[in-house]
Design a binder for these strands. Structure first.
Length: 591
RNA sequence: GGCCUAGUAGUUCAACUGGAUAGAAUAUCAGAUUUCGGCUCUGACGGUUGGAGGUUCGAAUCCUCUCUAGGUCACCA
């Protein structure tokens, strides 16, 4: 039983003994810094069952707790807040009984499995800053959910078919002159993306020409010859035309090579990929079943709809009049396919931008109507857009922040800062490059993950990302400093004889923060929020730095204190490392 | 227009989901190393939580109205 559970029980007992009343729940909160105490019981809610002065009630409960709960040694009451003071022994006991700090706070994976989807790229252009937020969020949530005791499958859905990829294919056919990633040395996704842009340039020119010839703009946009050709190509693809399919496979292959490189650079991976070209057919099957079961209705023109007006939503199309699939069709198919492939999953998390909030609301509802038990455990991890100072990113207008460029820039910044400090002059070139990437990516990832997913991010490439204050590198620096202490400490002695110690207030604060780690992981998993982990880590590091600055370690008064403080450093280092791994961020031994 | 989301120090973010005097960072200013890494630490300055009502012991948080920004209401994905 945790201390909080014990306290909760004893407070209820106190209310029962002293006032002959029954209390349902006890409300706790961390004691504010300006008051003495370690944990606080809020008295106000009790006034519903106990009539009286909150201060007097607080005093009575406090006295009861001191008498009946060993770790409680003192208390004070301010207004309706009962601040409880815990003994040093309690914290030392917590520290001493934790035997593996490397796994502290995490639980082994159980049988309950979740699937986490992130990335979902189109195959016609490279990944950009928006994808970066998506990928970082999804990967981190997967790590957090896993650490909270669930089994996790990481996946992406690749939008590999449709008019967009035909545009790139057509432009490549016309203007590519046989260019390949090998022949030009270009990254595959960049190469394909260039032809997507090329298509748009030609298309715009054709539209302008038509308008100049007197064709109304709306018609011109539909009738531009190059666009009509792209549509033809799509029809050929759907008909299985050998040449088109071969070209499609080749160019998608280039893109995947490029994506793999970017994912590897960012440091994320997947257990399984899904492709829309494979799942839309399964979707159609279940649409047919749904029609038979009365979940869907057929319009006179042959299109199929789901009527959600009773739920306060609109009618939603699930199959076109010509029988071809829409977005919803294949998403239904993909979801069902996943559960077929991994029967142990009880739920799925979709990391997708908030412009698709409505789509997922409808998707989940339809899956419920189709009678899938797991449909109630689907969650749309919706996140805000990443905007630039000039507004939205638009790939065709060249205002996107490219993912590869971004990583390169962050690494370069980390390099110039590290060079200036000159603490790693003895590193090899290889070691330096690894370190710069660790720091650069650490800054970027922390910067993005520390904000609540729902909020939009304004990304200013000029000011870029901070390296000081509440940042990744600040935390990495603290970790490196801890490692330096541990190297100098030689044989790290255990904290076995720590019971004799009286804690320094700074030590107590650090221990208090350490103790919060397990519940922080659970809370973050429950809320799918890496930001909670980021903020926790920052708190821990701040407490540690304050301790480090104010309490001598090697110059401690006696060997037991010294051993304990070194052990405390080691524990904090281990927790920082674990916490950062949940954010997908690495920590350096030196920097 | 209907629906959804966000609005908190100059700026970037918090606030344990209704609790104490709304906290950090950054910027600005003032301090700290005979000590283990100064990318550190200790302070100061900075707020009508977009606005107006309401609910109650208590509101940044819940309700109503309103303003601002964005998203969404496709036989696009």
């Amino acid at each position: 039983m945790t201390l909080q559970e014990t306290l909760s029980q004893k407070v209820k007992e106190a209310i029962s003994d002293l006032y002959q009343a029954t209390l349902e729940t006890v409300e706790f909160q961390a004691t504010r810094k300006d008051f003495e105490g370690d944990i606080t019981v809020v008295v106000f809610p009790m006034l519903r069952v106990v009539k009286g002065n909150p201060v007097a009630i607080g005093e009575a409960i406090g006295a009861y707790l001191v008498k009946h709960v060993t770790p409680v040694i003192n208390f004070n009451v301010v207004k309706g807040f009962l601040n409880i003071v815990l003994s040093d022994g309690y914290y030392l006991d917590f520290f001493g009984t934790t035997n593996n700090w490397n796994t502290f706070g995490t639980l082994p994976s159980g049988n309950d499995a979740m699937m986490v989807e992130y990335a979902s790229p189109n195959t016609n252009k490279p990944l950009h800053l928006g994808h970066v937020r998506n990928v970082l969020l999804g990967y981190s949530v997967a790590q957090i959910v896993k650490a909270s005791g669930k089994k996790v499958y990481k996946t992406q859905i690749i939008n590999d078919r449709g008019i967009h990829i035909c545009k790139s294919m057509l432009a490549w056919q016309r203007y590519g002159g046989g260019e390949t990633p090998e022949s030009s040395g270009k990254k595959g996704d960049k190469l394909v993306g260039d032809y997507y842009v090329r298509f748009d340039v030609v298309y715009k020119k054709e539209v302008a020409d038509l308008v100049a010839q007197g064709v109304p703009e709306e018609n011109a946009k539909k009738e531009a010859p190059i666009l009509m050709q792209a549509h033809e190509m799509l029809l050929k693809w759907e008909a299985g035309d050998q040449d088109v399919v071969t070209l499609w496979e080749t160019m998608n292959g280039w893109v995947y090579q490029g994506f793999d490189k970017t994912y590897a650079d960012i440091g994320v991976d997947f257990d399984k990929n899904y492709y829309e070209s494979n799942t839309y057919l399964l979707g159609k099957e279940f649409i047919a079943e749904g029609l038979a079961a009365g979940v869907f209705v057929k319009d006179p023109d042959g299109s199929l709809w789901c009527d959600l007006t009773d739920e306060g939503l609109d009618r939603k199309i699930v199959l076109r009049a010509d029988g071809t699939a829409v977005y919803m069709t294949q998403d239904i198919g993909t979801a069902i396919q996943r559960v077929k492939d991994y029967p142990d999953i009880s739920g799925m998390i979709y990391t997708v931008g908030n412009e698709q909030d409505y789509h997922f609301q409808v998707l989940f509802l339809i899956l419920k109507k189709l009678g899938f038990e797991w449909a109630k455990n689907l969650f749309h991890l919706s996140y805000g857009m990443v905007d630039l100072p000039g507004g939205k990113m638009k790939s065709r207008e060249g205002t996107v922040v490219d993912a590869d460029d971004l990583i390169k820039d962050m690494t370069a910044t980390a390099c110039s800062i590290s060079e200036a400090l000159g603490k790693i002059d003895d590193f090899t070139k290889q070691e330096k490059e690894t370190l710069y990437k660790t720091i650069g990516l650490g800054a970027l990832k922390y910067y993005i993950l520390k904000v609540d997913p729902k909020k939009r991010i304004l990304f200013n490439p000029e000011e870029s990302v901070d390296f000081q204050g509440n940042t990744g590198p600040f935390i990495q620096y603290t970790y490196a400093r801890i490692q330096s202490i541990l190297r100098k400490a030689e044989t790290p002695k255990g904290a076995s004889n720590s019971h004799i110690l009286v804690l320094h207030p700074k030590e107590k604060e650090v221990l208090k923060t350490l103790q919060l780690f397990p519940e922080t992981i659970q809370l973050a998993a429950l809320n799918y929020s890496p930001a909670l982990i980021a903020n926790y880590t920052y708190d821990l590091v701040k407490e540690f730095n304050s301790f480090y600055q104010n309490v001598p370690i090697f110059a401690a008064e006696n060997p037991a204190e010294k051993a304990f403080r070194i052990a405390l450093c080691s524990a904090v280092g281990a927790v920082i490392k674990t916490a950062f791994s949940l954010l997908g961020i690495q920590v350096p031994a030196r920097m």
